[in-house]
Design a protein around this nucleic acid. Sequence first.
DNA 1: CTAGATTGCGCAATGC
DNA 2: GGCATTGCGCAATCTA
Lengths: 163, 163
Amino acid sequence: MSRPSQAKLTTSDHNGVSVIQSQAHATSSSLPAAVAGLQQVPQLVPADPSTTGGKALPPSKMKKPPADKDSDEYRQRRERNNLAVKKSRMRSKQKAMDTQQRVNELKEENERLEAKIKLLSKELSVLKDLFLEHAHNLADNVQPPTGADGSSPAPNSTATNGQ
Amino acid sequence: MSRPSQAKLTTSDHNGVSVIQSQAHATSSSLPAAVAGLQQVPQLVPADPSTTGGKALPPSKMKKPPADKDSDEYRQRRERNNLAVKKSRMRSKQKAMDTQQRVNELKEENERLEAKIKLLSKELSVLKDLFLEHAHNLADNVQPPTGADGSSPAPNSTATNGQ
DNA sequence: CTAGATTGCGCAATGC
DNA sequence: GGCATTGCGCAATCTA
């Protein structure tokens, strides 16, 4: 033993062990040649396969051998996983950046649209004013100083604007 | 010696060593009581401080002691860092989610704006049509079957639409 | 210089 | 059985 490994009260139920690493994670592989001593692998595995119960092992319920650290298989799996992890993380980061970019684009577009709205609104108001003026002119022309007739004044319409 | 630690050709110049861990990263601390044997710490540090050159060590250029694994200080630092890391990652994730949210909001707003533009455009076209109609009516009224007068027709204005 | 914040990386559990 | 994701710890670096 080397560490107390006190009871874990946290939700984290990881294993909490690591050993040496340091290898070139290239596709190639330079396996360790010779290592002297030092190999604390909690080797708490059964001896023979029949320990599982001798049955046909339905859903397969057995303790996994703590992954033989020196196994060739193990190193291979690790390397593959490391690669996958790197890939996944890169994509994740890329996605984040893309999202950020999207935000910027959308913001720009928004401004564009708002500007257009402003312009259209202005145009509309101008046209409406023209209309009103016209109406007044008409009213003044149609009812010249001929006399006082009880005709109702020009009907105005000023309710066409909705937020 | 414990591990080959082969020459690192990769850009990564990490250290590449880890040992056992597993501790509750709570604010409290339950220090390890007793640990037996097992302590492979590559203790390749100078003996006395004068090794640095005996000078006043300007930019301070000395190899860091590989962090005594069992040191109390060490564990404390690690724990703090682990906490910081967790915090940082949480914030990072949160930020990512916020950004995503922002995208959704902006998209909605965009649709809203586009709808408004559509509406305004329609209103505008209606008004313009009304105008044209009016102009025609005027033309028909101002120039009744009285004869051919060389008056220029109603000045139309149809160039007010941008983009 | 000390301490937290970031970041790259490997490990292991788990999802698919 | 294999890649993809994800939480986590370590160490180097950045930053305050």
